[in-house]
């Protein structure tokens, strides 16, 4: 709807939009600001916004007190690991359904999505017990398995929607040109699907990074990723707001930045291509 409007109108709309946007963003901004405060300044009332002594001491303390880096490592291993495995399983499946659809393809896709409807809590108990017996409680492997399976349907849907946009004629042309199935995947399909695969990957990492049901219930200390680690600040001693803010900032920063870069694909991805 790019139309000519008067500057006054434009300024008016801009002010309104920026005001609302900053309002929504405020808790994040506030967290970041607070992370640079001393504990005293953090709970000052009325709150101070910029006029305080900026310090990095909270960041130092967070690392010293709770081995922050271990949890970052856990988060990274779990989210990257589960995403990578899920991609390996879902790319062939999405390829298969996008380029060789059968009468049942739609039903299979819907069924896959329906497994997401199964509330995690319903299967918490068997998982907890099985993991306890298998020694998978509080292990990264245990979480990777769960997150892989949990996000698999969404991954397949996303990849499916991206693959479907690659015209079948191109793959046929390449078959006519004498390429084998392997060559077709290496030379044609993969390069063409890279943008789709990349944004799927990014989104899945975000979802896995932020997952907070299984991580809270299945991991305790050793394998706890950031989402579970941060929750430990909910105890009353968590009133150390500067440290809480520093830990939070560190936990969300990488994902926030990733998210900013992938926000355009995010819409497509999370709506399975239904909204572009």
């Amino acid at each position: 709807m790019a139309r000519n409007v008067t500057t006054a109108k434009r300024v008016g709309w801009s002010i309104a939009a920026w005001f609302v946007a900053l309002l929504i963003f405020f808790p994040i901004l506030w967290t970041v600001i607070t992370s640079f405060k001393s504990e005293g300044a953090a709970i000052a009332f009325p709150p101070v916004f910029f006029d305080f002594d900026w310090t990095l001491s909270s960041y130092v303390e967070v690392q010293e007190r709770s081995d922050y880096l271990l949890h970052v490592w856990n988060s990274a291993v779990i989210s990257l690991g589960s995403t990578f495995i899920a991609l390996l399983i879902s790319i062939p499946a999405a390829w298969s359904m996008a380029f060789n659809p059968t009468k049942r393809t739609k039903d299979i896709l819907m069924w896959m999505l329906s497994t997401k409807m199964l509330p995690a809590v319903a299967v918490l108990v068997p998982f907890y017990l099985a993991y306890k017996n298998l020694g998978l409680l509080d292990t990264k492997l245990g979480l990777i398995i769960i997150l892989t399976m949990m996000n698999l349907p969404i991954l397949i849907w996303m990849l499916f929607s991206y693959f479907k946009e690659i015209p079948g004629e191109i793959l046929e042309a390449c078959r006519m040109d004498g390429a084998t199935l392997g060559q077709e995947i290496v030379y044609i399909l993969t390069p063409m699907a890279v943008p789709g695969i990349a944004s799927t990957l990014l989104l899945n990492i975000i979802m896995a990074w932020n997952e907070a049901f299984w991580t809270l219930n299945i991991s305790a200390s050793q394998a706890a990723p950031l989402s579970a680690f941060i929750a430990s600040y909910s105890s009353p001693e968590g009133l150390f707001w500067a440290k809480l803010s520093a830990a939070s900032t560190l936990a969300i920063a990488p994902i926030l930045i990733m998210g900013w870069f992938s926000q355009k694909q995010l819409v497509r991805g999370l709506t399975f291509g239904a909204v572009k």
Binding site: I24, F25, I28, W30, A231, Y233, G238, S248, I252
Partner: peptide, 20 residues
């Protein structure tokens, strides 16, 4: 700015809101 909260992990969101 508007999309950012979506990327904040639930535990962080809850803690920040609860406390600050």
């Amino acid at each position: 700015l508007v999309i950012s909260p979506f990327f904040v992990m639930p535990t962080v969101a809850a803690l920040v809101w609860k406390n600050m």
